Simulated scan of single mutants.
Amino acid sequence: MPIYLRTAGYKIYFWSNESDEAIHFHLTKGNPTKNDTKVWVLSNGSFKPAHNKGRIPEKDLSRIFSAMQAYYFDFIDFWKTYHNGEVKFYN
Score class of each variant (00 low, 15 high):
Asp20Gly: 12
Phe89Lys: 07
His51Thr: 08
Tyr71Met: 10
Leu42Met: 15
Val41Lys: 02
Lys53Pro: 00
Phe78Arg: 01
Met68Tyr: 05
Asn44Thr: 10
Gly54Pro: 07
Ala67Leu: 01
Phe47Thr: 05
Thr37Glu: 05
Phe25Ile: 04
Thr33Pro: 10
Arg6Phe: 02
His83Thr: 11
Asn52Thr: 05
Ala22Ser: 15
Asp74Asn: 12
Ala50Pro: 00
Lys38Gln: 14
Arg63Gly: 01
Leu5Pro: 01
Leu27Ala: 09
Val87Ser: 02
Asn84His: 13
Arg6Met: 08
Tyr13Val: 06
Phe47Leu: 07
Ala70Leu: 14
Ser66Ile: 02
Arg6Thr: 14
Val87Phe: 01
Phe14Asp: 01
Tyr72Leu: 04
Ile64Gln: 05
Leu5Val: 05
Tyr10Asn: 04
Gly85Asp: 05
Trp40Asn: 11
Tyr71Thr: 11
Lys59Gln: 11
Glu21Lys: 15
Ile3Leu: 07
Lys48Asp: 12
Trp79Leu: 06
Pro57Cys: 01
Thr81Ala: 08
Glu86Gly: 00
Val87Cys: 01
Asn31Asp: 14
Phe65Trp: 10
Glu58Phe: 09
Pro32His: 09
Leu61Thr: 08
Pro57Thr: 01
Tyr13Gly: 02
Val39Thr: 06
Lys29Pro: 06
Pro49His: 00
Tyr4Leu: 05
Lys48Leu: 15
Asp74Trp: 03
Asp20Ile: 10
His24Pro: 10
Arg6Ile: 11
Asn35Thr: 15
Asn52His: 04
Pro49Arg: 07
Asp36Pro: 08
Asp36Leu: 07
Glu58Ser: 11
Gly30Ser: 13
Asp36Gly: 10
Glu21Val: 00
Asp77Trp: 00
Leu5Cys: 02
His51Leu: 03
Pro49Ala: 03
Val41Asn: 04
Ser46Pro: 00
Phe75Met: 12
Asn52Arg: 05
His83Gly: 05
Lys80Pro: 09
Leu27Tyr: 03
Val87Tyr: 04
Ser46Gln: 09
Asn84Met: 09
Gly54Gln: 02
Thr7Asp: 12
Trp15Gly: 03
Lys38Glu: 13
Asp74Gly: 07
Trp15Asp: 15
Asn17Phe: 13
Tyr90Arg: 11
Phe75Ile: 09
Thr33Phe: 08
Asp20Met: 08
Leu42Glu: 09
His83Phe: 05
Asn84Ala: 12
Gly30Pro: 09
Thr33Trp: 09
Lys59Ala: 14
Phe78Gln: 00
Glu21Cys: 09
Val87Pro: 03
Lys53Leu: 08
Asn17Ala: 10
Thr37Gln: 03
Lys80Ser: 08
Thr33Gln: 06
Leu5Phe: 13
Lys59Ser: 12
His24Ala: 07
Ser66Tyr: 04
Ser46Lys: 12
Asp60Trp: 04
Gly30Glu: 09
Phe73Ala: 10
Gly54Ile: 04
Tyr72Asn: 07
Asn91Pro: 14
Asn35Tyr: 14
Gly85Cys: 03
Ser16Trp: 08
Lys59Trp: 04
Phe73Trp: 10
Asn44Gln: 06
Gly9Met: 06
Phe89Ile: 03
Lys48Tyr: 13
Thr81Tyr: 12
His83Asn: 15
Gly54Cys: 03
Asn35Leu: 12
Arg63His: 06
Lys29Phe: 07
Asp77Leu: 06
Ile23Gln: 08
Asp77Ala: 11
Thr37Met: 06
